[in-house]
């Protein structure tokens, strides 16, 4: 996993509620492909015109928001399908952080698995940052500092955010969670032995 410490850059506003992972990447793009090369298909149903050109009404197509490392989003971002390709797509578009009032649960977990930082902030703060970005395009910057757990707004205010200590540590160090869990192999084997004795019915039919 790609570690995350701090990111400073343009924050692109996409203030739509309930952006689902089908909107981020249609499933057809995930059939028979890997993690790479998905960026150009991100939001493709909104981002491109029927002739393949950029849709000027799509917020992320406007200068200077194209290729921004931070996304300013609305309620329930990443709801719907569990497809991790949604996270790979956003990262393929150059994003490292999504700031939203709330996230779909599965998407939220998938972000941490890949080094895309989801930050929860109140919608009022997000709207104000979006306005600041629009008012001063090209000049305004946002900093997301995971170490200090603050978002530094375009007007210089350091707004704290909450993040689980486990997830924070894992992101800062780029931890391999499987390797970490395998260190508990003895505890897992002991649990399974106990459970097999107590709940033989759960094991025997499939053993």
């Amino acid at each position: 996993m790609q570690p995350f410490t701090t990111v400073t850059g343009i924050a692109a506003p996409l203030l739509w509620a309930n952006v689902d992972t089908d909107m981020i990447i249609p499933v057809q793009r995930l059939v028979g492909t890997g993690r790479d090369g998905l960026g150009p298909h991100g939001f493709e149903r909104f981002r491109y015109l029927p002739d393949g050109g950029d849709n000027p009404d799509f917020p992320l197509n406007r200068a200077p928001f194209k290729g921004a490392p931070i996304l300013l989003a609305d309620e329930n971002f990443g709801c719907g399908s569990s497809r991790e390709g949604a996270v790979w797509t956003l990262m393929g578009m150059g994003l490292r952080c999504v700031i939203a009032p709330s996230f779909g649960d599965i998407f939220h977990n998938n972000c941490f698995q890949n080094g895309l930082l989801p930050v929860r902030l109140p919608i009022e703060v997000i709207r104000r940052m979006a306005e600041a970005m629009e008012e001063s395009p090209g000049n305004a910057r946002v900093t997301v500092d995971l170490d200090r757990q603050v978002v530094v707004t375009p007007w210089g205010e350091a707004v704290p955010f909450a993040v689980d200590a486990r997830k924070r540590e894992a992101l800062l160090s780029g931890l391999d969670e499987v390797a970490q869990t395998l260190q508990r192999a003895d505890a897992i084997a002991a649990w399974q032995a106990r459970d097999r004795a107590a709940r033989a019915w759960a094991w025997d039919p499939v053993g």
Partner: peptide
């Protein structure tokens, strides 16, 4: 769950 979490489950 996502694909990475699924890989974690399969391995552990």
């Amino acid at each position: 769950i996502g694909a990475s979490e699924l890989a974690h489950v399969l391995a552990t």
